[in-house]
Amino acid sequence: MDQQIIDDINQWLDEVVIGLNLCPFAAKPRREKRVRIAISHATDEETLLNDLQAELERLSDTPVDELETTLLAIPDMLENFEDYNDFLDAVDLWVEQFGWEGELQVASFHPQYQFADTEADEPGNLTNRSPWPLLHIIREESLEQAIEHYPDVEGIPERNIKRMEALTGDEKRKLFPYLFG
């Protein structure tokens, strides 16, 4: 099962995130094998927070030239997006309480991801729909450096929404099989 989860995430990274250039900063660390995919088999929030803590520590303690970012997959809980979204409050509090603020941040991806004030079937939601619930741990310093050298950071979300709107039904089924299976 773990290998299938890793394969699903790798395919999503390669075909969606990098393939559609949703994140212009993802290709280089992926190519350099500095993206870690970890899996938490937690079935309760406390265990999941402990697993997140271990990954925050690993990323913080590992040189950036060895590990740039971590994706923590959560296959055994938080299948419902509202539950996942509520849990993100605990994640933010955890990052703050343990002093990671300013060093690490956590981005969110989920198979049912839905931005506030959107309908569930709006194409823009696809930009954050992953095959499994994920917590993406990002080094703030790396993000700041990438943003500094990217000409139009503010335009990324709008460009990504347009990219999703332009996908045909067949392309969506190919790129997001977990949504149409």
Rank of each mutant, 00 (worst) to 15 (best):
N125Q: 11
D83L: 08
I138L: 14
E82L: 12
S130M: 05
E82A: 13
S142K: 08
P157C: 07
D152K: 11
L134G: 02
T127H: 04
D92A: 11
Q105T: 12
P75L: 09
M77L: 12
V106K: 00
W132C: 00
A107M: 04
R129P: 06
S142H: 03
L143P: 07
E140K: 08
E101N: 07
F81D: 01
V95E: 04
F98Q: 12
P157H: 07
N80Y: 02
E122P: 06
N125Y: 11
V91E: 03
T118K: 04
Q145Y: 10
G155P: 01
E103H: 13
E103W: 02
G99I: 08
S142A: 15
E141N: 13
G99T: 08
Q97P: 01
T127S: 15
N80M: 03
D89L: 14
E158V: 14
L143N: 11
E82T: 13
Q97R: 14
D121S: 15
D152R: 11
S130I: 07
F87P: 03
L78T: 06
G99N: 08
L126E: 07
E158A: 15
I137F: 01
Y150S: 04
Q145C: 06
Q145D: 15
L93S: 12
A146Y: 05
P133T: 04
M77P: 02
P151H: 14
V106E: 01
D89M: 10
Q114N: 02
D117A: 13
D152N: 14
G102C: 11
F98E: 06
M77G: 03
L143Y: 12
P133H: 07
A146S: 15
Y113F: 15
L126R: 11
E144C: 08
Q114D: 03
P123F: 11
Y84V: 00
R129T: 04
V91R: 00
Q114G: 02
E103C: 03
E103V: 09
W94K: 15
F109P: 06
Y113L: 09
P111K: 07
L88G: 01
L126D: 09
P151F: 11
P151L: 12
E122A: 14
S108Y: 12
V153I: 11
Y150C: 04
L143A: 12
E82S: 13
L126S: 06
Q97H: 09
I156E: 09
L135G: 03
V91M: 09
P131V: 05
F109N: 06
P151E: 15
Y84L: 03
D117R: 11
E101D: 13
N85P: 01
Q105G: 10
G102R: 11
N128K: 03
E122T: 10
N85K: 15
W132S: 02
E122W: 07
